[in-house]
């Protein structure tokens, strides 16, 4: 598989949220606005790329029996770094993402890619895979955040778009709205797949 394909598979063919259905917990929780979606997406992408690179670099030295605890230490280290750096430089964003940053540790996309890809492939490929998957995750959050913020609050990036006359569908920014929107998108992607394979 070419390097470009390794990157682009994360965007659509193997999009972690819409196709692999991984990392749904943070997806449901922080897709209520575009700002949160971007913040969470970029933080997770950074951790994913770094952990993929390190895991790939260590793959020959890591004994098979203890690979999972080692992966988790690597991931947790990068998450803590992101947490501290964000708090020091983007205090407001750090406040609004709150608990979800430490939870990147258990985002199964990251451990999933370490186990399924970076532990078996070279550094460059792992880097590209992490980047593609991370951007795919960010895009998925953005799509959901766009729909939920626009219809649920009448705004985009905090700026009123639909005006006063529009009555926001509050349900969409509440947790059930996350399930509904995600479900519709999963269905849509499956439908496109079925159409194409015919």
């Amino acid at each position: 598989m070419s390097l470009f394909n390794e990157f682009s598979k994360g965007l659509y063919e193997k999009n972690p949220v819409f196709r692999l259905a991984l990392g749904l917990c943070p997806t449901l929780a922080v897709s209520n606005s575009i700002e949160n979606a971007i913040g969470m997406g970029l933080a997770a992408t950074f951790v994913l790329v770094c952990s993929n690179v390190i895991v790939s670099m260590m793959r020959k030295a890591v004994p098979n029996k203890i690979r999972i605890p080692i992966y988790i230490v690597v991931i947790a280290t990068f998450v803590t770094i992101v947490d501290l750096v964000l708090e020091a430089t983007r205090y407001e964003l750090h406040k609004s993402l709150g608990l979800f940053i430490p939870l990147i540790v258990v985002n199964c996309i990251i451990l999933g890619r370490a186990e399924a890809f970076a532990g078996k492939n070279g550094v460059v490929r792992s880097f590209v895979d992490g980047l593609g998957m991370g951007i795919g995750f960010t895009l998925a959050l953005l799509v959901l955040g766009f729909v939920r913020e626009l219809l649920g609050d009448g705004k985009l990036i905090g700026i009123s778009i639909l005006g006063e006359a529009f009555k926001p569908v509050l349900l969409l920014i509440l947790p059930p709205g996350a399930f509904l929107t995600l479900g519709i998108f999963l269905g849509l992607f499956n439908w496109i797949d079925i159409k194409r394979s015919k």
């Binding site: 030295a61 890591v62 004994p63 203890i66 605890p69 080692i70 230490v73 690597v74 947790a76 280290t77 803590t80 770094i81 501290l84 750096v85 708090e87 020091a88």
Partner: peptide, 20 residues
């Protein structure tokens, strides 16, 4: 091996903590 990995990780964290 596990100890080595965690030692490297914690020293990296203490550096970042000091900086931030």
């Amino acid at each position: 091996i596990l100890m080595l990995v965690t030692a490297v990780a914690s020293s990296a964290l203490s550096i970042v903590n000091n900086l931030t």
